[in-house]
Design a protein around this nucleic acid. Structure first.
Lengths: 170, 170
DNA sequence: TCTGAACTTGTCATGTTATTACATATCGCC
DNA sequence: GGCGATATGTAATAACATGACAAGTTCAGA
C-alpha cells in the first residue's frame, strides 16, 4: 500500500470529489502491474491500455467507446479485442461492469476482495464506487430465510451527485 | 420428490417455493386491472397479455421471448410492441427489469411502493423478489456521506437457490 | 536452442438487445 | 362529428455482445 492516498480522498473513495488524477492513474496502473507480476498473469499492452483508458476517463465507458480509442491508436479494431481486455480486467478485479449502463469502470479498490456498490449520477454520468456488505440488510435476511446462497451482488444506485444538486441546471 | 411437474410449475419463486400459481396469476391481473382503472390508465390487451405471460412463466423473460409469444398469438411482431408494453408495466410497478439478465419479471408486490431486490439462481434461472431499504446499510451511509441523492436502486444477488443446493446435480 | 503447450491476439461473421422515426388507429371528451 | 392525447403498426437501424477459427506470442522443460 502506498504511504499516502491522494489527499482530497480521505473520505474513502467517495468519488464525486476532485482528486489528483495523474497520480491516481499511475498508482492504479502500478498496482495492477504488481498484482499481475505477483500472480503470474499477463498484463499485456492492450490490457494495460484499456485499464489506463478507464482510469483516464474516470467514468463508465461502453465497450465500443473503449474500442474506438484502441482503434485510433492501432491497438485493435474488432469488438472482441475490447471485450476480452475488459473481461480480463473485470475477472482480475481491476475493473467492474455497471449493469445498469452496460459499461465498464476502473475499480477503486484493486487488489482487495470486495463487493462493490455504485452511485450513478443521472445528470452527469459520474459513477462513484463504494463497498457493500451483501450479507447484511434486508437482502441478506431474505437470502438466509429462503436458503439462498449469495455468490455475487449487483448494487447500483441511480440519483443525483452532490455537484449536480448544487448546479443551477437541476 | 415427485417429478410429475406440469411444465411451468417446478421451481417457482416468490420465495423459491411452490404456490398456487393459477390464483397467483388471476390475483395479479385483477390487481393490475383495478389499479389501472383507479388511476385512469389503459390496461390494453397487449399490456395485459404481456403481464400474463410474465406471470405464467414466473421467471425473467427477455423482451424477444415475450415478443415471440405475442407473435404466435398475432398480437404484434416488431420489437417496439414488446418493449412498449414492458416499459408500461415497469413504469407502473407491475413488472421489473432484471439488469443482470436484460430480462423482465412480473412484480411480486404490485401497487405498493417498494425498492425491489432480487435473488437470481445461476443454476436454474429462478428469480425471487424481495424488498430492500436503499437508505440503510453501507450504500446508504456512503450516499449520505457523499451527499448523493438516491432515486432508485438496482440490487440483484446471484447465487444458488435452495432447490438447486439440494439437488445432486451440483 | 528447440519445441510444444498454453495463452493471447486478429479477424470475420453473427447473435442479441434496444431505440428512432413516422404513419395509422383508437380512446375520451366537448 | 371533431379534436387532442394516447396507443399501435412497421421499417430501419443502433448498441451491445459472442462464436469460431487462424495466427502470433510466451515460457518452461527437454
Amino acid at each position: 500500500m502506498t504511504s499516502s492516498d491522494h489527499g482530497t480522498d480521505a473520505k474513502n473513495a467517495l468519488g464525486f470529489e476532485r482528486h489528483d488524477h495523474a497520480s491516481c492513474i499511475t498508482d492504479a496502473l502500478g498496482k495492477a502491474e504488481r498484482i499481475c507480476a505477483a500472480e503470474g498473469i499477463r498484463f499485456t499492452p492492450v490490457r494495460r491500455r484499456v485499464l489506463e483508458i478507464l482510469l483516464q476517463e474516470h467514468k463508465a465507458l461502453g465497450a465500443y467507446e473503449v474500442l474506438d480509442r484502441l482503434r485510433d491508436e492501432g491497438l485493435g479494431s474488432q469488438p472482441p479485442i475490447a471485450y476480452r481486455a475488459l473481461e480480463f480486467l473485470v475477472q482480475n478485479g481491476f475493473a467492474h461492469k455497471i449493469e445498469r449502463l452496460n459499461a465498464f469502470i476502473a475499480c477503486a479498490h484493486p487488489g482487495q476482495i470486495h463487493a462493490p456498490a455504485f452511485m450513478i449520477c443521472t445528470k452527469c454520468d459520474a459513477v462513484a464506487e463504494t463497498r457493500s456488505e451483501p450479507a447484511q440488510g434486508d437482502l441478506g435476511d431474505a437470502a438466509r430465510a429462503a436458503g439462498f446462497q449469495i455468490e455475487r451482488t449487483v448494487l447500483e444506485a441511480e440519483g443525483v451527485c452532490p455537484l449536480c444538486q448544487d448546479s443551477p441546471q437541476s
